[in-house]
Design a protein around this nucleic acid. Structure first.
Lengths: 112, 112
DNA sequence: TTCTAATGACCTATATAAAAACCATTTTTG
DNA sequence: CAAAAATGGTTTTTATATAGGTCATTAGAA
């Protein structure tokens, strides 16, 4: 990540992450897992789990998803079975769309 | 990330990420954005956007969420307004739970 | 068909996220 | 209350994800 980029996030992203982290923390406590237990099962450090539960946007999505699964927070409100079906549906949709998006360079006739 | 950790992901995580990436790609094309356009608006490189759309789990969640917002993929099927409310609800729930999870060290009387 | 933009795939350098080790505080239980 | 465990912060080191190029291929528009 060269050139020292200070990323800026939209409010929606921040809140979505905050909510996901909160849901994870609640689910963990409801199931009576300690932070260390969940971290171990997810193969991550306890520090990272803390950041995830705080909704830190600079975490790899794989770690977040993995923790969510472990504590029982459903992504997309979807079961495993329906998930696979949704993937197929998306692939179908994609195959119907043009492979590349073309920007009409000039002489646009649309808006007349 | 010391000790050369090769992370392993559950099937559910992989599929969730695959689905999210697919939804993003479909949404981007439906709205006729080029990859470069979305990358620019998200403040990320085109290469990273490609990885996101492929469902690569090693991307920071902030970048993924940001891209999702830009192309119009809703996280949690929730509007911005309800999102804030959900956060509050989660906080309330959390405040009712014990602050730390205690593991009964020995002399368990539960399972008799 | 031709021309060009868009995409997909690589590569390298570097900023940085994560692990691991701390310590201080809080919280629960015995 | 006392003891132990869980949590919340640090800091340092190191692996690695990202930016930012390049190049080949593809696909759409004229």
């Amino acid at each position: 990540m060269p050139k020292s980029i200070t990323r800026t996030y939209s409010r929606y992203s921040r809140e979505a992450s905050l909510l996901l982290g909160g849901l994870i923390r609640v689910a963990r406590k409801e199931r009576k897992f300690t932070a260390q237990e969940v971290a171990d099962r997810a193969g991550i450090s306890r520090g990272l789990l803390q950041r995830i539960e705080k909704g830190d946007l600079k975490c790899e999505i794989g770690a977040v998803f993995e923790v969510a699964v472990i504590v029982g927070v459903k992504l997309f409100d979807a079961e495993e079975t329906t998930l696979t079906r949704h993937i197929r549906q998306t692939e179908d949709k994609l195959s119907l769309l043009p492979k590349s998006v073309r920007k009409k360079s000039k002489t646009v006739h649309d808006d007349f």
